[in-house]
């Protein structure tokens, strides 16, 4: 949107023409507010050039305009029906589907929701043709993909690749010499370890939304996972039970392992909980929120295992800390008022 906004608007206009729409919106996350002036200027210059507004290019049957809408930055508003709710001025809570936006979208009218990359590609295809677009990429994934590379690499930034490129190639190009894992497609995407670096980026192999977060060997994978777990607690919209409650339960379990209090039973619990969230949540956010945990349990088991206690079970709370109030009330500070934690845990079934 910074460098190719005009191309995106062009693509939206093409879409408007194809489906017969009169109004388009750009939904801009609050974090990108700094782009507003530039985007407005671009829209205005398109209007002045007769490429937006009434009777585009002099064709009285073709009128289309684009408005900017600024969201408050909720992650869930990336879900298309939550985005539409937010666009209508309501809470960003995903709708029940069906009906889908294609029939009941903005103000219950048929609506196309696409990301900027798709619209930019559409504009190019309109000019250069499908053949040109399909000449790159793989059999099932035509064209190119934008990848946003960040994390432990020498040259972070946005890269464009034909579909089918290997993960290893991408890492080499951005100067990620020592990667142990990558979080692909953001926190809700998938975490992959070096074992999968020869896989190819395309729909038939490793599909990705576009973001690549590189973790090198100096990092503790579990630190990253812990961040993601906290992130989803913050971003859950709170509508449905598995995501609203599950994200907090999962965070607590990750924290428990991270602080060295976890046991094998907790890892099993994470898997079960993650499964309930994955299949039970109302929208994609809750369904994908456990991905970082579930993936890393498979791909980086050692990140968890080296922190586990050897016992089979440990309570979720600290018994000694729980007794603090009782000690305070009775004024006791003698050694017998403190529990021997090791002995206690050993005595658990």
């Amino acid at each position: 949107m910074q460098d190719f906004a005009d191309l995106v608007f062009e693509g939206m206009t093409v879409c408007g023409r194809v489906i017969g729409a009169r109004q388009g919106f750009v939904y801009l996350r609050g974090e990108y507010r700094y782009l507003v002036d530039a985007l407005k200027a671009t829209l205005q210059s398109r209007r002045e050039a007769g490429l937006l507004g009434e009777a585009i290019l002099g064709d009285p049957s073709f009128s289309f305009d684009i408005d900017l809408h600024i969201g408050a930055g909720a992650y869930v508003c990336g879900e298309e029906s939550a985005l539409i709710e937010s666009l209508e001025g309501k809470h960003g809570v995903p709708r029940i589907r069906p009906p889908f936006p294609t029939t009941h979208g903005y103000l219950n009218k048929p609506t196309v929701v696409n990301n900027v990359e798709t619209f930019a590609s559409a504009a190019k295809i309109a000019v250069q043709g499908g053949e040109w677009f399909a000449s790159r990429g793989t059999a099932e994934s035509k064209g190119t993909k934008l990848l946003s590379l960040s994390g432990d690499c020498e040259r972070p930034g946005i890269y464009e690749y034909p579909f089918g490129v290997t993960v290893r190639q991408v890492l080499e190009d951005c100067g990620a010499r020592d990667a142990q894992g990558i979080q692909m497609a953001g926190p809700a995407g998938h975490m992959i370890s070096a074992k999968l670096f020869d896989r190819r980026i395309c729909f038939e192999d490793l599909a990705t939304g576009g973001s690549f977060m590189v973790f090198d060997h100096r990092r503790d994978i579990l630190d990253g996972i812990r961040n993601f777990a906290h992130f989803f607690v913050h971003e859950s919209c709170g509508f449905c039970t598995p995501c609203r409650v599950g994200t907090s339960l999962l965070r607590d379990l990750v924290d428990k392992v991270h602080t060295g209090h976890g046991t094998r039973a907790d890892l099993e619990e994470m898997r079960k909980l993650g499964q309930i969230m994955r299949v039970g949540s109302h929208c994609g956010l809750g369904q994908t929120a456990p991905n970082p945990v579930l993936d890393s349990l498979d791909q980086f088991p050692e990140a968890y295992e080296r922190r586990l206690r050897s016992t089979a079970f440990e309570p979720a709370f600290d018994m000694n800390a729980a007794l603090e109030q009782a000690r305070w009330l009775t004024g006791r500070t003698d050694p017998a008022a403190y529990l021997d934690e090791e002995a206690l845990v050993g005595a658990m079934p």
């Binding site: 409650v245 309930i276 299949v279």
Partner: peptide, 13 residues
């Protein structure tokens, strides 16, 4: 099992 898990979530919440 899924249903029980969801109910348990409601109870502890």
């Amino acid at each position: 099992e899924m249903r029980r898990g969801i109910l348990q979530m409601l109870f502890v919440e």
